[in-house]
């Protein structure tokens, strides 16, 4: 099982760029439930990877593994060439893995921004405070500097007029845009989107997708788990179809219109 899901094969351009995210034989089990059964994936910097698949295929779990919200059971994930979650140590004359501590995990997470299906905004803070929170308390940025940054990020997602609103006073689409601004304020190299439009009313999906499209145009490295086939076709550099804990098919966005695997064909028929 050495499916290397990649469209950018750098060598022939004579340029060895390091992958932004590289997954090698990733396994994940919850108790006796084997969710991921050997995922290989390479995401190059500045590209958009869209992961498609039916519910329960393990695509969200894979995204959560990258950000260490879950712990790997087997295999390896590298972000910017650095192994995440563990470090190699000498133990009784053998090289073994040791779990990273809180601080080391936080440092690795700083490269990644994440957007959740249910937004997960902090309800006791206004939009502005939500975005300022991490720059002030994690990066120890000054309040006024953080405020400027937060205002700029909120303007970027079209919410410059909503600074002092609480999440409960915003629509779902607006809340998700605040969540995107909150992640961007930490200046991540890679953005992870976990079904960012699945909890939205149909008429609010467009505003979130347009912000994501704008981010992709600016060259952000993105991994997006979604059911929005249209978005995948337009924006993705790489499309990965997962089912039953394995990568069934991968390739450029053209595979959406010309799928090879019957399971992918079947899935597309149901979604489109």
């Amino acid at each position: 099982m050495s499916e290397q899901a990649t469209t950018q094969t750098a060598p022939q351009q004579g340029q060895h760029t390091m992958p932004a995210v590289e997954a090698i034989g990733v396994h994940k089990a919850f108790g006796r439930l084997h969710v991921l059964k050997g995922i290989d994936m390479t995401v190059m910097p500045g590209t958009v990877t869209v992961i498609l698949g039916p519910s329960g295929s393990g695509k969200s779990t894979f995204l959560r593994l990258i950000n260490q919200l879950e712990t790997l059971t087997g295999g390896e994930i590298r972000v910017d060439g650095e192994m995440i979650g563990f470090k190699k140590v000498e133990h009784k004359g053998q090289e073994v893995l040791q779990t990273l501590n809180d601080k080391e995990i936080a440092a690795q997470r700083s490269k990644l921004g994440m957007v959740f299906q249910r937004f997960n905004l902090f309800p006791h803070m206004t939009a502005l405070e939500n975005v300022m929170e991490a720059p002030v308390h994690v990066k120890h940025m000054g309040k006024s500097e953080a405020r400027e940054l937060a205002v700029a990020e909120l303007q970027r997602v079209g919410l410059g007029q909503r600074l002092d609103y609480y999440p409960s006073q915003l629509s779902g689409g607006q809340q998700q845009r605040v969540a995107i601004a909150r992640a961007l304020a930490m200046k991540p190299e890679i953005m992870l989107f976990d079904e960012p439009t699945s909890a939205l009313d149909p008429e609010l999906v467009g505003e979130v997708l347009s912000v994501m499209r704008q981010l992709a145009d600016e060259g952000m490295t993105m991994i997006v788990v979604t059911h929005e086939i249209g978005f995948a076709r337009e924006v993705a550099d790489q499309v990965v179809f997962m089912d039953g804990g394995v990568v069934v098919e991968h390739g450029g966005p053209e595979i959406i219109d010309h799928p090879n695997e019957p399971r992918f064909k079947d899935f597309l028929q149901h979604v489109l």
Binding site: A106, R109, S110, A134, M186
Partner: peptide, 20 residues
Amino acid sequence: GQTEAAKALGMKRSLIMRRI
């Protein structure tokens, strides 16, 4: 989900408890 979002922003356990 609040803890997850805070973790994803790089916040430490004690900070998440105090602020979130």
